[in-house]
Amino acid sequence: MQEQASQAASLALAYAGAGLGLGLAVVGAGLGIGKLAQGVAEGVARQPSASGQISAATNLPLFLLEGVAILAEVFCLMIVLK
């Protein structure tokens, strides 16, 4: 009985950890994308003619950032499903 309860508690902790991790990943990715968007907006506001080049240069770091966030989310999902 006690063993069952402790098992349930550890399962609950695992779910809580997955939820917390998901939240943290989203916070980090949100901050990163926010900074990126800020930089792009300022750059385009100062130099509207370079908007094409600016957005082209933004694409790569944006996708690398997205990749890290997605990885974190996949691992959180794996915790939940295991």
Binding site: F63, L64, E66, G67, V68, I70, L71, E73, V74
Partner: peptide, 13 residues
């Protein structure tokens, strides 16, 4: 590895 995860996770998500 990141390429793998990004595409599959986005589609499944």
């Amino acid at each position: 590895f990141a390429l793998t995860m990004r595409l599959a996770a986005n589609m499944t998500g």
